[in-house]
């Protein structure tokens, strides 16, 4: 009996230890180490750490690329919220209403979701070809309908590059967010809608007075995830423009990668990563606070 008790005591720890060890070594220790490394000047060629205090952080304040990158991150976050939260929610509500026949509904759902299963490079290179100045689909289309003067070298011009990249992200993720909303809407008890219909509520009234309040939590969480995503975006920017031309489409993530692994200034890149950590952490904290006050009321 004693051995059984001992076993019963030790078992949960043994079950959890592999997960804890892996996460400690590859998630938590790196995050802490990152702050430490940001206090040094070092590179991958010369990995000896030379202590320079907060110099890397002072450099952030004077770096002219930082404001451009942060502006692009903000644009990315705002446009993504407009499409992946508001627009996706409207699409989900329409698909779950009776306007669309179920047969077509499932076709639309699958088709809109499809881009989100593709690798970021598949998406990025496909759209590079679509944006391409001469053979690309968009400029060919504009010329075909007589709007040739609107044609741009979308990814090659400083004024359009970041918007071209953000647009591709919306193309890839709106359907994914729509599905998350659909799942949330399906969990709302049908009786609520029946009662509203008996009282003569219109589809609009049902949407604003039942759907939105009932999936409030999903909207909130998805909004924060989207905003955080806008600040940590790296892959699609790197694949499509690598931050160019002339850093016009750079983001914090892209710039940190360039500084670290192209310019080999690891210390400064660590400081940039710390900045990214602080921003995402603050956003998560705000979300948790809002979520909690929502539950109390």
């Amino acid at each position: 009996m004693k051995t059984y008790r001992w076993k019963r005591w030790i078992t949960p720890y043994l079950l959890i230890i592999p997960a804890v060890v892996i996460m400690l070594v590859f998630v938590y220790i790196p995050v802490v180490e990152n702050i430490y490394y940001s206090l040094f000047c070092w590179s991958s060629i010369d990995p000896t750490l030379k202590y320079i205090g907060l110099d890397n952080y002072a450099r952030i304040l004077n770096d002219k690329i930082i404001p451009i990158a942060l502006r692009n991150n903000v644009l990315y976050a705002l446009i993504s919220v407009a499409f992946q939260v508001f627009f996706a929610l409207i699409l989900a509500a329409i698909l779950e209403s009776r306007v669309i026949r179920p047969r077509w509904g499932s076709i639309f759902r699958s088709a809109f979701f499809l881009p989100s299963v593709l690798a970021v490079t598949v998406v990025g290179i496909t759209w590079q070809l679509i944006y391409s100045p001469n053979s690309g689909l968009i400029n060919q289309f504009l010329r075909a309908i007589g709007l040739g003067n609107l044609a741009h070298a979308w990814l090659g011009e400083e004024s359009t590059a970041i918007f071209a990249v953000i647009g591709v992200s919306q193309w890839q993720w709106v359907g994914y967010c729509m599905i998350l909303f659909i799942v949330a809407i399906q969990a709302i008890p049908e009786e609520l809608y029946e009662a509203a219909r008996i009282d003569g509520a219109s589809a609009m009234q049902q949407f604003f007075n039942i759907t939105i309040p009932m999936i409030r939590e999903t909207i909130l969480v998805l909004t924060t995830i989207t905003v955080i995503g806008g600040f940590k975006v790296f892959d699609i920017v790197w694949v499509m423009t690598a931050g160019g031309p002339n850093n016009a489409s750079n983001t914090l993530g892209g710039y940190l990668y360039r500084v670290g692994f192209r310019n080999d200034e690891m210390g400064y890149a660590s400081a940039l990563a710390t900045l990214l950590f602080v921003i995402t952490f603050a956003l998560t904290f705000i979300q948790l606070r809002i979520g909690r006050t929502g539950k109390e009321s």
Binding site: P30, E33, Y257, T280
Partner: peptide, 22 residues
């Protein structure tokens, strides 16, 4: 401890991971 990993951006750990893996 385990669920907290959901909140961390992999970008933040990229440089230390590079050192650890090397």
């Amino acid at each position: 401890f385990i669920l907290g990993g959901l909140m961390l951006a992999p970008e933040v750990s990229l440089i230390p991971l590079f050192r650890i893996l090397s």
